[in-house]
Write a protein that binds this DNA or RNA. Sequence first.
DNA 1: TTCCGCATGTAACCAGTTACATGATTAC
DNA 2: GTAATCATGTAACTGGTTACATGCGGAA
Lengths: 191, 191
Amino acid sequence: MALEHAILVSLSEKPSTGYDLARRFDASIGYFWTATHQQIYRVLAAMEGSGWVTSTLVPQPGRPDKKVYEPTAAGRAELAEWLGRPAEPERPRSDLAVKIRGVSDGDPAEVRREVARHRRLHAERLDVYLASEKRDFPPPAALEGRRLHQWLVLQGGIARERSMLGWCDLVLAALDSGSSGQRPDEGGVRA
Amino acid sequence: MALEHAILVSLSEKPSTGYDLARRFDASIGYFWTATHQQIYRVLAAMEGSGWVTSTLVPQPGRPDKKVYEPTAAGRAELAEWLGRPAEPERPRSDLAVKIRGVSDGDPAEVRREVARHRRLHAERLDVYLASEKRDFPPPAALEGRRLHQWLVLQGGIARERSMLGWCDLVLAALDSGSSGQRPDEGGVRA
DNA sequence: TTCCGCATGTAACCAGTTACATGATTAC
DNA sequence: GTAATCATGTAACTGGTTACATGCGGAA
């Protein structure tokens, strides 16, 4: 499982609470791995049990206490070992592709609308990534170490969104030219 | 869940046994949705329970009997309804990205080797897709109906693999130029 | 005789999702 | 007063993976 290891990477960048981790899994780390706070608290507890992390209770005035986690030596060793361990690429899984393959089994206009909606979502995500690149990183030539590695995974996200965008455009064009007289309306669709 | 619906799409293209479906989920459908035979038999049974498919036992000389499934009217209705139902894009999840973000926590050479290995796997998959495009499809202008839709999802797979390939190359280049004197050896690596 | 293809399944487990639950402080 | 932010969790469920199990026919 990669979640444990994603948490270890994140904690080795900076010791944090489960809450902090959850927020980072909604942002930067979430660009390539997602997890809810429930999942994070659960595996954090399990990881503490297996000795990969330790926690320190930090009382805060007028705020609930927080449990700050950091990796132990054993945790670091496990992470290092995992990094070298070969793993298979994820198995592709795309609801949208199933729907596209099934256009003939339903209302093509509805599927088209769904593709347009996804196109919009991917465009938005791409904007977020590009904004983060601009905001958080200097020109790539100047990058090294952890910053470089963070930038590299961001590039992976950017590439993925660009490719999804291009694919959605291809599908929309094909669905339009194929079927009757329905004209595109990407602009203001509000599924 | 999309597996039920992927099965419905596949059965509406052609009534099949669980075994047939499992093979198709290893090939064409597997380009965008994967499932093992265990999973397929399980949901097929459940779908028969909810009346989305019916099965006919077909005895075969000198072969085990086979159960040929096909969608019922209710199954077709459910599929049509699902096709128009909005669904969120998959949450990104990439082990490889976690490892890249973690290079500083392990042996960079090992992570590099893993990236090179993934590059090779994606190149192989791309070749499979391109071969299928060449073998199974006429020039796209001549396509329509189900064949067009199949071609469109294939294009999605091709785009995805190309984008992964480009990303792997970027990462490999960055890891090489950053670190000491290790020269690339993509060609013959055998992780 | 050994392996591969056809054909169907069960059982146990693991990971991820959704819903529920609590409670203080600060900003509007 | 109402909502958002900080902070931590439990419980039930769903979907996917891995391992195990069976048995025939044909090819090497």
